[in-house]
Design a binder for these strands. Structure first.
Lengths: 155, 155
DNA sequence: GTCGTTATCTTAGTAACTAAGATATATATC
DNA sequence: GATATATATCTTAGTTACTAAGATAACGAC
């Protein structure tokens, strides 16, 4: 094996470990934020889905999280009770329940991510557009791999 | 704002979203793996810590996960019962309990990550050493930010 | 209108968690 | 060396989020 190949293998090993740690830290951050706003971390995860997708049905939340619909009932109850979300019947299909974020919910959660976002902005500032493009490209490829892997594991 | 700056802002926004998604997917992967080996996802997280740090005390696991020592007692019971780890008294300080992985545990878990690792190797193969260095650098900076953020949130 | 399907909720039971206190060992003080 | 304090884990009782299975209500096809 050439010198360069060995270097690359070491680089990849370091990157693997770093990605693994980053993943674990992601869990810890959302856990800490959830605790601070008085929610279970699953509840915050669902609220996150609601922000990314807009009002969603209870069934959609169950599918996205892998929880049963019964668990989602309790989860949405907690989100409602804490004032982060509310239920609304879908006028087009009255079996469905749309869960939507309360307007003021974001104002209560965003500040907790403020310091993280600022720190990340300082990280982003270190890189050129070309470099950020490369990093985004890598991240997107990781995502594709993750999506396929999750599907395969749950098969 | 110049054209280039707007591009960069858009790039950063895309990267933020991608990182957020990647973090959520990390949770889902470890959840799926844990279910497959018949463990709670917290149990697998602890097993991961044991692999990364070697034999650790129950207290260290409590600190690393944020769980109470009582919860760790039950967690280690489950790991022992499932044959993934075992307790051993620390000969130097007999109050301490060292938790170590059973030699055969890795052989039961690693295969579940095999397909992920192979897919990731194909991703890595797309990049040069210089590019991988850049990505590793970025990942490490993210980690530093995460460590500080977690400490601040739990303060 | 009736039947099968879909979406959510309800109920009963389970498992992991916390908080507080018990136990055993270690360390410091006199 | 005996006593007091601190540390590390375990135990117990009670809480909470979860699953599984079935109830309820609304939709769609015939």
């Amino acid at each position: 094996m050439s010198r360069g190949a060995a270097d690359k293998a070491a680089l990849i090993a370091a990157l693997e470990l770093a990605l693994r740690r980053m993943s674990a830290q992601g869990v810890m951050i959302s856990q800490a934020v959830a605790t601070k706003v008085g929610l279970a971390s699953t509840d915050l995860e669902c609220l996150d889905i609601i922000y990314m997708e807009g009002p969603v049905t209870a069934g959609r939340l169950a599918a996205a999280t892998g929880l049963t619909t019964g668990a989602i009932t309790g989860l949405v109850d907690r989100l409602e009770r804490a004032g982060f979300a509310r239920r609304r019947r879908d006028p087009d299909d009255r079996r469905k329940v749309l869960v939507e974020a309360m307007p003021e919910a974001e104002a209560r959660i965003a500040p907790l991510y403020g310091s993280l976002q600022q720190a990340m902005q300082r990280v982003y500032a270190r890189y050129s557009k070309a470099e950020l493009t490369l990093i985004l490209d890598f991240t997107n490829r990781c995502q594709e791999v993750a999506v396929q892997e999750i599907a395969q594991l749950n098969r």
